[in-house]
């Protein structure tokens, strides 16, 4: 029972981090109808900046610069590629993002080399004991920070002019333009926010119990794709629920994999994709989505 609670807590914590990534992925899709396959590399940019700077400027400033840097790279991708590409199909843009991803990831993994870079976070490997349940401080921090960010985002999405412009554009970009909404600004904002959220996610994917930022960090980030897809590509609620489902499934599967040897080792890593496939078989548009992936 204690193991279960610990696994569940870890799963939820990691799930909120996946939700941060999936949320960015979803708002890019809503604003521009582009599937951003460069999302994991945005995350890597953020993590890399934090890892390189924390020793000289301190952790918090490094974190801020990392967030700003990833947001900037996101905005640049929108400004230089997405906005200029005058292509008929959004699938072509999705393929362009694969190209961007390859360029960024190759460059960054070459910089990282075989190293495992620490991010200099203040929580280190300290553990919080709640009764018999032990949970790493990093996990608590992840849960708190991700929850705050997600809540702030959803409130802004619901109540601010930015959120209204964003939703109007997502629903009918031509009519939104007739309201004077500038599509370029909306989509650049979406890319920048997605980058910023990815940088925060990078931090929590790389801290304890993970040894640090290394070339495998993008694989961890990839698990957010199934979160976004199973929740429904165009649904912010879906991104959150999807993130939690993936996080919890992965944690439980990894935690109990000794009891499930028949499924093979490393089931925790493939579980997110299995869950996604099962859900898509039942609901092709994802849990909360309105658009099927096939139509993208």
């Amino acid at each position: 029972m204690i193991t279960f609670l610990e696994l569940l807590a870890n799963g939820i914590s990691v799930g909120t981090v996946y939700a941060l990534i999936a949320l960015g992925f979803v708002i890019i899709f809503k604003a521009t109808e582009v599937l951003n396959f460069a999302h994991a590399s945005l995350l890597l940019v953020g993590g890399f900046i934090i890892a390189k700077l924390h020793a000289s400027v301190g952790f918090w400033l490094a974190l801020l610069i990392g967030i700003a840097g990833a947001a900037l790279v996101g905005a640049l991708i929108e400004f230089l590629v997405i906005r200029r590409a005058n292509v008929a199909s959004h699938s072509v843009l999705a393929i362009a993002t694969i190209g961007i991803d390859i360029v960024l990831t190759t460059e960054l993994t070459r910089e990282i080399g075989a190293d495992v870079l620490a991010l200099g976070d203040p929580w280190r490997d300290q553990v919080l004991h709640l009764g018999a349940v032990s949970i790493a401080q990093t996990r608590v921090a992840a849960l708190v920070v991700a929850t705050v960010l997600i809540t702030a985002f959803l409130l802004a999405f619901k109540y601010t002019n930015w959120g209204i412009a964003m939703r109007a554009t997502a629903e009918d970009s031509e009519t939104a333009a007739l309201m004077g909404v500038r599509r370029g600004r909306v989509s650049m904002g979406a890319w920048a926010i997605a980058g910023a959220l990815a940088a925060v996610a990078a931090l929590f994917l790389c801290v304890f119990p993970t040894p640090g930022l290394d070339r495998s960090t993008t694989f961890a980030a990839m698990k957010a794709f199934p979160a976004a897809i199973l929740g429904g590509l165009d649904s912010t609620t879906g991104a959150l629920v999807g993130g939690l489902i993936i996080g919890v499934t992965e944690a439980l599967m990894s935690g109990y994999q000794n009891d499930m040897v028949f499924l093979g080792r490393g089931i925790g890593d493939v579980a997110p994709f299995l869950v996604m496939i099962v859900i898509l078989l039942i609901r092709p548009a994802g849990l909360f989505g309105t658009r099927e992936l096939a139509r993208v």
Partner: peptide, 20 residues
């Protein structure tokens, strides 16, 4: 008409003021 069907009436009106 092209109202934003998934948004509320109030939000549609707010959308109309975005480019004012």
């Amino acid at each position: 008409r092209r109202v934003f069907a998934r948004m509320t009436v109030e939000e549609n009106l707010r959308a109309g003021a975005l480019g004012a």
